[in-house]
Amino acid sequence: MNTTRKIALSMLMTVITTVSVIRAQEVDRIGIPELEKILAASDDRLYVINFWATWCAPCVKELPHFEKISKEYKSDKVKFVLISLDFPSQVDKQLIPFLKKNKITLPVSVMTDLDYNEWIEKVDTSWQGNIPATLIFNKAAGRRLFIPDEVDEADLRKAIEEQL
């Protein structure tokens, strides 16, 4: 009886661990230090950082462009990161199902620090916090473009090409 319980418990633990590993792979919960780390990336790659949320209709509309264009470049040349501003309480019931349903393959981080005023200007001093917004930069090459607006596929491709 005792052994059976132990086995059952260890199986349960395995299931829990597996589930949490899968979740961790799907979205990376970040705060200001992790955001700053992403923004400070200085390896010689072009970073394309898109700020979005599942509740933002124009963001959802432009997301496929990022997915599509990301496949045209090698990740050692252009690195795409999606930073979701979905509320932390919505990650499991809204964000993760959305990513699965729409087969989003790009890495997704979710910003859990809701004290927006503490970090919005770290992304760009001109940003008013409206989404979608996209930051394209290569620190090593001294290139930087901030687009606080929706982009269509042609605009996004052109913006990336110009910063490469």
Binding site: A53, C56, P58, L85, Y116, N117, I120, E121, W127, Q128, G129, N130, I131, P132, D149, E150
Partner: peptide, 9 residues
């Protein structure tokens, strides 16, 4: 003045 995330007009 503060900044906050919101829906684009």
């Amino acid at each position: 003045g503060t900044k906050a995330v919101g829906c684009t007009i």
